[in-house]
């Protein structure tokens, strides 16, 4: 990875539901795996969502856009890892569970909250269409594109979130600072 912050972009997978939990992201039966690579085929295997098929819907997707309380349930970091190993480093949602959100930043990934109106307008404008996003980390804004339609939406990262994203995660940062 030449630039750690370069990877927060790509084609969007829209998941139109609240409360997608960690068992749906990666079922508990795969928690006996001791490597991230082994999780690759099982991402979102148990997701209950109309029109979603884990076998085909994930193809060539690098960003997830979803509703509220994404990642609720267990503390398993296997959930962000299952995304990471599928080269999805960015999840945009109305809200996240606390542990899941922290896990994302601890891994140097991004879990970005947008206000409900912004999420609503993303779904209204782009759902069912091919849509991609690029992230400007310095300006803290996303630019969404689908055909001729572009939408720029600002976001806010806390200082600590930004520190972790730039440091590539919490272990290195904590060991150097505490």
């Amino acid at each position: 990875m030449s630039n750690k912050t370069d990877r927060f972009k790509g084609n969007i997978l829209f998941l139109d539901r609240d409360d997608i939990n960690t068992d749906e992201i990666i079922p508990a039966k795969y928690l006996t795996e001791n490597s991230k690579a082994a999780l690759k085929p099982y991402l979102l295997e148990d997701l209950k969502l109309e029109g979603f098929d884990p076998a085909t819907s994930l193809e060539n997707r690098q960003v997830v856009v979803t509703r509220n309380n994404f990642g609720c349930g267990s503390s398993r970091e296997h959930a962000p890892w299952a995304l990471e190993i599928n080269e999805i480093y960015l999840v945009i949602a109305e809200g996240f569970s606390r542990i899941y959100r922290q896990n994302m930043y601890n891994c140097g990934m991004m879990a970005v909250e947008l206000p409900k109106e912004d999420i609503d307008s993303l779904f209204e404008t782009f759902k069912g269409k091919e849509c991609s996003v690029v992230t400007d980390l310095e300006a803290q804004s996303f630019t969404f594109t689908s055909g001729d339609t572009t939408l720029t939406i600002p976001f806010k990262l806390s200082e600590f979130d930004k520190t972790l994203v730039e440091a590539g995660g919490w272990v290195e940062f904590a060991d150097a600072n505490y």
Partner: peptide, 20 residues
């Protein structure tokens, strides 16, 4: 509080954790 593996790792290593 429950935490993920990276927070656990830092807890084991340094005895600290970050919380909002």
């Amino acid at each position: 509080a429950g935490v993920g593996t990276t927070d656990l790792e830092v807890g084991i290593l340094k005895g600290v954790c970050s919380f909002k």
